[in-house]
């Protein structure tokens, strides 16, 4: 990490309440270019709230957030967002391609897609390996495929940051492996922020872990030494060191 580089997301002294009940207090967070941060924490701990604040869907009670030095609402179009897919109506009649095209909506006032928009959408489908499913109904594909379609939608929109909300919640292990391969590839050009509640192990992919439970504490991911766990899962693993306290901005071991 280069010291003089400026953080692309800066959260300072942030408080957020829902009807008086504090959800987040005194949050400091810096996200750097090409960072990969996993946001973990218990349900109701404020993970999704933090993301919605960064996207400008909610506004803080105190403190500030800047994204690329601007207000979150103004920087929105530079963020690709992958929401939880659980909230979609399973009966909604829409094709995979039409879902992905939504990533290109910002192009015109009426939402008409140009030829270039459609090409971007098809390229995003190709990148996520969904070209063959483009015309299939969104409701008829598997959970893992749907997740990839939502990632394709975020990729079609372009942008330098990718934010994912619980993308691995309902997918099988094989899809999860492929999913992290895709994220690794994307991380070469994009900053990645991902929410998950599977706290135990979040794959070796992430550089840093943000634990969110009313407060946000940054942990570095560090190599797991326990040989038996490595043997059990067979692969390189990283674990979160909750015994380890860092400075507020977090630090990095590499």
């Amino acid at each position: 990490m280069i010291a003089e580089e400026r953080a692309i997301i800066e959260v300072r002294d942030l408080d957020f309440n829902y009807d008086q009940a504090p959800v987040l207090t005194d949050v400091h967070l810096d996200i750097w270019p090409l960072d990969s941060v996993c946001i973990v924490g218990p349900n109701g701990g404020g993970k999704t709230t933090l993301i919605k604040l960064i996207l400008g869907l909610l506004s803080p009670a105190r403190g500030s957030i800047t994204v690329f030095g601007h207000k979150p609402e103004e920087a929105r179009l530079r963020i690709g967002y992958v929401p939880q897919y659980a909230h979609y109506d399973p009966q909604f009649p829409i094709s995979v391609r039409d879902v992905v095209c939504m990533g290109r909506l910002s192009g015109s006032f009426t939402g008409r897609y140009s030829k270039a928009d459609k090409e971007h959408a098809m390229a995003a489908l190709a990148k996520t390996g969904l070209t063959d499913l483009a015309t299939r109904p969104f409701a008829s594909i598997s959970g893992g495929q749907r997740q990839r379609a939502l990632i394709a939608r975020a990729l079609a929109s372009g942008g330098e940051i990718l934010i994912l909300d619980e993308p691995t919640a309902n997918i099988d292990h094989e899809s999860e492996v492929r999913f992290f391969d895709l994220l690794t590839e994307l991380n070469a050009a994009m900053t990645i922020l991902m929410v998950t509640h599977e706290v135990g192990f979040a794959s070796g992919f992430f550089k840093r872990i943000a634990c969110v439970n009313r407060q946000v504490v940054i942990h570095p991911t560090s190599e797991l030494t326990g040989r038996h766990i490595q043997e059990m899962y067979g692969g390189d693993l990283k674990m979160i060191r909750h015994d380890h306290r860092c400075s507020e901005g977090g630090h990095c071991h590499d």
Binding site: L57, M102, L105, T110, G111, R153
Partner: peptide, 22 residues
Amino acid sequence: GIFYNTFLALCFDEEYAQLRGV
């Protein structure tokens, strides 16, 4: 006819449509 795509996005995923500047 004019707003077909934006109406579709509004019904399918309002929050996402908003994030795309709709």
